[in-house]
Design a protein around this nucleic acid. Sequence first.
DNA 1: TCGCAAATGGAATAAATGTTCCATATGGTC
DNA 2: GACCATATGGAACATTTATTCCATTTGCGA
Lengths: 275, 275
Amino acid sequence: MSPTTDQTAPTNVTEVLERLDELIGTLPKRLDQCAAFTRRHLHLIAVSTVSDMAREAGVAPSVYMRFCQALGFSGYSEMQALFRVQYTAFRPAYDERIATLRPEMEGGPGALLAEFAEAGHKSLMSLANTVTSEGLGAIAQGMAAAPLLHLVGMRRAFAVVSNMSYMLGKLEVPAVLHSDTGRLGGPGVVGAGQAVFAATFSPFSQETLDFARLAKERGALVYGLSDVEDCPLAEFADGLLIARENEVAGFRSLNASLTLTTALVVAIGALQEGN
Amino acid sequence: MSPTTDQTAPTNVTEVLERLDELIGTLPKRLDQCAAFTRRHLHLIAVSTVSDMAREAGVAPSVYMRFCQALGFSGYSEMQALFRVQYTAFRPAYDERIATLRPEMEGGPGALLAEFAEAGHKSLMSLANTVTSEGLGAIAQGMAAAPLLHLVGMRRAFAVVSNMSYMLGKLEVPAVLHSDTGRLGGPGVVGAGQAVFAATFSPFSQETLDFARLAKERGALVYGLSDVEDCPLAEFADGLLIARENEVAGFRSLNASLTLTTALVVAIGALQEGN
DNA sequence: TCGCAAATGGAATAAATGTTCCATATGGTC
DNA sequence: GACCATATGGAACATTTATTCCATTTGCGA
């Protein structure tokens, strides 16, 4: 049937990978090129044409065709089908509009995930409503100008500030993450002229609010992130960002918060780069 | 030019979403069907034909065609192209990240935020493509059945596991967060029958991989989260989730990862509740 | 109930994509 | 250096998929 191989075709992505690893090195130059490229860009198959793949791999379409056959497929279409099913296999039970968690669990974890994804889309869309370019820009500038940044956030907000801490580190922007683990450095270490970024969602963390207020009294610039406008931080902060997260049966992810803070950190990085 | 609308075509997923929400309810029955279905299955567009989408939406292909035009596109192909680019965009080199950012910074931090929001939408969409309901369900069950959960993740993955840790705590599910801070408990504390959830994104953290492998050898169940299929965890893990994050000038947020793990944690909580 | 405008679905057509074939090139062996 | 087996890429062909057209249906206002 297939001229180049009598091996049976892989039936899932794992098998494709196995076969790829098995073949790489043993194939003719151009086919090896296909294998190497494909190995690194498996995810492109589902959305590309043979010509696309061939071009990116640097070979002629007919070569890529033969490569598919060497893998055991009848042709590109068959291989592509394998990579496409995984996209279509996941059928979120989105269709039926479900209101509470228990019915959501009826549809299995897939339906639950679909609900959270949907909530994520909405959260991201509402970001545009609560954040202005000027507000974000002012905060980015304030933070970029500070010689040292302090990040505070407890509980749900901790993931947000710890992620900021990681990214700022990568960008080589001096920042300290104040976690409540072992009570390392409190607000006492914040110096005048430095900047604090405090994140707290309702119900607000008293510790975070206290830290921010004390830092402010010590002459630091205080910026904040919250999920509602009437966060106590608003009273004294030099800038406050709002990221409202849509919830699923009372549970909230952090899509808007992380997207907003990621953009903020990158903006800070870009500003510092410019200096 | 286009008979059904003189509106200009959306240029990104965010705009498609907005236009969809704007249009739903105002369109004729069949077109509304298309809009409703498409709103819930955005992720299918990249890998489906018009007939596929039309069939799933319960309309004739020509109707779906007109729906694309009502959205402002010239046809299905043009719309599909919009959903395909996200997969084909290649990542720029690390060093050039800030440099490639310049164009985005031109529009101020607001434009940057919009870029990250757009990337977030795409990440959430592709989540439905890399995760199956069964896979997620199996992992949720395995983790719910374990007497103790261990969470491991360094660097970019740390925010993910620390958020899981927080949520699991709220749900009163016994879990230990292993951070590398001060080298608290290594894999030695993991007992047979317990479960480990290890998150690591490429380039993978050797520490996380080692932890997971040792735990596996000690008889624990190992589940993982990564951003690519060929993560070393795949070799020995009992279950692996994939969350691919779209990037902006080389920077990635954590939308897909957090949404996925949030759904996972809630599923675990619901399963334990049932016991 | 009739007439009209809009919507609908099926069938025809156009475009693109996948696949195969074959002439030419390449590399190894005697 | 000639021969043979194998690899390669372009061009022809076949198939699938997108798009348009049009006859029929539907729903609304007179």
